[in-house]
Computed example of a mutant assay.
Amino acid sequence: MLVAALAAALIAFLGATITDLDGWYRTLEQPGWAPPDYVYGMAWTTIFALIALAGVTAWRRTPTTQASDMLIGLFALNGFLNILWSLLFFRAQRPDWALIELVALWISIVVLIVVCARYSKLAAILLLPYLAWVTVAGMLNWEVVQLNGPFG
């Protein structure tokens, strides 16, 4: 559990350090339904805790080392895609590229849910808020691109 918590905390920390809500981001027109800034921190904290719990719950039920390694690899890939979205959106200032990358992130969450469900229904259920939040983030990302594009 400690390793999963540390991995989730590391990914959350990297994503947070990449995320810059000042300067360029403040110049972007946001949709009227965008949540206030403080909601993002609360949501991501909860989601990363659920991701860690889901990972441990499914990992403990994997029948083989190969299944365990595959599951860890899927979580690692998902963490990479999560960080990559922040890099593209905030650092590269390319919400359009981030939107394309978000499709890969969303698919990786669906794959995690399907694979975790093989080992633990609870683990799959724990990932549903992550999928819902990234879906909302995708709609927000789409609106930001529509309201502010073209980029680059």
Rank of each mutant, 00 (worst) to 15 (best):
L84Y: 07
A8K: 00
A16T: 13
L127R: 12
V115K: 02
L127P: 07
V110H: 09
Y25K: 14
G149H: 09
I47L: 15
Q146V: 09
W133L: 11
V114G: 02
L147H: 11
G32D: 11
A117H: 15
N82P: 03
T27W: 08
N78T: 11
W85M: 05
A12N: 00
P31K: 15
Y130G: 01
V144F: 04
F89P: 01
I107H: 03
D96R: 13
L140V: 13
R26G: 06
F151A: 01
I125R: 04
Q93M: 12
G32E: 12
D37W: 12
T57Y: 06
R118C: 10
P36N: 15
A137S: 11
G79Y: 08
W24K: 10
A117T: 03
Q30E: 05
L28E: 06
P63R: 15
V144W: 07
E101V: 10
L99S: 09
T17W: 05
Y25I: 13
W59F: 15
R91V: 12
I11H: 00
A124R: 11
I125F: 02
G41E: 00
L77C: 08
L74E: 07
L84V: 14
W33D: 05
R91L: 08
L105H: 04
R94L: 01
V114E: 07
A8N: 03
S120E: 12
A124K: 09
W59T: 02
Q66M: 06
Q146I: 01
A124P: 04
P63V: 14
A54N: 04
K121H: 10
V114D: 11
R60E: 10
Y25R: 13
M70T: 10
S120R: 03
L128T: 15
W44N: 00
G138D: 02
W59H: 09
G23C: 06
A9S: 11
F13I: 08
Q146H: 14
L87H: 10
Q30V: 01
Q30K: 15
R61G: 04
T46L: 13
F13K: 09
S68P: 02
T57S: 15
I113Y: 07
A58W: 08
A123Y: 10
D20K: 15
W142F: 14
I47E: 04
E101L: 13
T19A: 05
V115E: 10
I107D: 05
A12I: 00
F151D: 05
I113Q: 01
G152M: 02
R61A: 14
A67C: 05
L71Q: 06
G152L: 00
R61T: 02
G41A: 00
A12R: 00
R118E: 08
P35L: 14
Y130W: 11
I100N: 05
I100E: 06
P95V: 14
E101K: 10
Q30F: 07
V3L: 14
T45K: 01
L81Q: 11
R26W: 03
A117Q: 08
V103I: 15
A8G: 05
L126G: 08
